[in-house]
Design a binder for these strands. Structure first.
Lengths: 231, 231
DNA sequence: TAATTAATGTGAATAATCCCACAGATGAAT
DNA sequence: ATTCATCTGTGGGATTATTCACATTAATTA
């Protein structure tokens, strides 16, 4: 299934994260030696929870989910994100074992980077370390807010937030294909598959969204935002 | 109310965090110049959400809560922790504004450290940066797990987890005074004051805990753990 | 194409939790 | 000691969301 791209020359790669701009050619070489680019199909797992950390993964393009199997052995989606971004970073520094999984929700290009180079740069390039710390800090704060919002709002508002997130951030369009199943949508907003169905049905009935299978059309974003704010 | 301690000489301070051990005398001086130690009484706010970040705060001793006012203007407790630890760190690197508040739940000694020295060390001492990154990484991963656990378990299990956390981690004793009110307990485990009352009542009725106001006695830790695991 | 599996929709019954109203207890301040 | 504010306990109806059982519709594979 997976396709491996030979001769991965990071220097010439046009896809960049903010952290990368700080590096000079020599440092790029340190980071990228032994890196391998792999293409994943939709649904394929990029990082598996419970495995040993061996790599930092740079997602060049594609939509991915961070998810973990919780104490009740139910899967929960922590975040849905799109490249370019690094994933698996906290696991490398905190544990020897990946705390959560990363799975492709669309076809995805990802570079597996040996973490020794990454760690070396952290210790020897203060700006690189500083950028990483900024990224981690933002990640913590965003997740604090996300989690509080999820527990304080009721389902309809959290569902509205998810739709706005897809529309405004992930796809930047009012029309898109939901990149997850109803089951996954439940795992994302913290409810059951059936409740997702009902929410979609209710929103469609009120002409807030148009629905055709996975295809969503945001018809009334103002009401969506109102529902989000009302909690 | 607050007492300011003069002549704060960090070098001689016996309270240390793992990050501090890395520093030599000169670096300690960089970190600690202009630092001020302040004593807070139970209930006093140490960091206020929405204010500008000016300091990293080192909590030398005492129990504190990290909490934030969510989108519904309801307070929620993110974490309950005890010194020694640093607080306010992600805010300093992510924003100019504190994302959440920190409030003393017991009498607390805290050092306010100008963040410029802290940032300087991050950029000029690779080990210090690396330690900070480890700390932040652990913080993210723990909060992921905490949040997933809270959303997947039902109330009784989350309540049991909180009791175990107080008993095993915060107080390291089977007998302790809950450091928060029933309202705050609700804000911590994500429920209402009344539900907390009922949970306490139910657990006491089943001789799992003994209760007298804020005083808690863990009578049957095994059942508590069973409830926690059952979800 | 048929066969099979995965994904989705639906309604009713059930359960969990919230919310409201009021009563009592505690603690701080004057 | 008295007052006032905060904190806590209690019951029950209202609300929200879950669960179950089954029907229906894609999607995939033999």
């Amino acid at each position: 299934m997976r396709e491996i791209v030979k001769d991965n020359t990071c220097k010439d790669c046009v896809v960049k994260s903010s952290m990368i701009y700080i590096l000079d050619d020599e440092e790029m070489e340190i980071l990228c030696k032994n890196s391998i680019e792999i293409l994943f199909q939709k649904g394929e797992r990029i990082i598996k929870q419970g495995t040993f950390t061996q790599n930092i993964v740079f997602v060049k393009s594609g939509i991915i989910k961070l998810h973990l199997s919780g104490p009740m052995h139910k899967d929960e989606i922590l975040k849905i994100e799109k490249g370019p971004l690094f994933v698996g970073v906290p696991d490398v520094f905190a544990n020897k074992i990946h705390n959560h999984s990363v799975t492709a929700l669309s076809d995805t290009a990802a570079c597996f980077i040996d973490y020794t180079g990454y760690k070396y740069l952290v210790q020897n390039n203060g700006k690189f370390a500083h950028e990483l710390i900024k990224t981690l800090s933002n990640s913590i704060i965003n997740y604090y807010n996300h989690c509080v919002s999820k527990t304080q709002k009721q389902l309809a508002a959290t569902f509205a937030d998810a739709l706005l997130y897809f529309s405004d951030y992930i796809f930047e369009s009012n029309e898109f294909l939901i990149p997850i199943t109803r089951v996954e949508f439940g795992e994302y907003i913290g409810t059951s598959r059936e409740s997702v169905t009902k929410l979609i049905h209710d929103f469609a009935k009120d002409d807030i969204i148009g629905v055709n299978g996975k295809k969503i059309n945001i018809l009334n974003k103002k009401i969506l935002q109102k529902i989000s704010n009302a909690g």
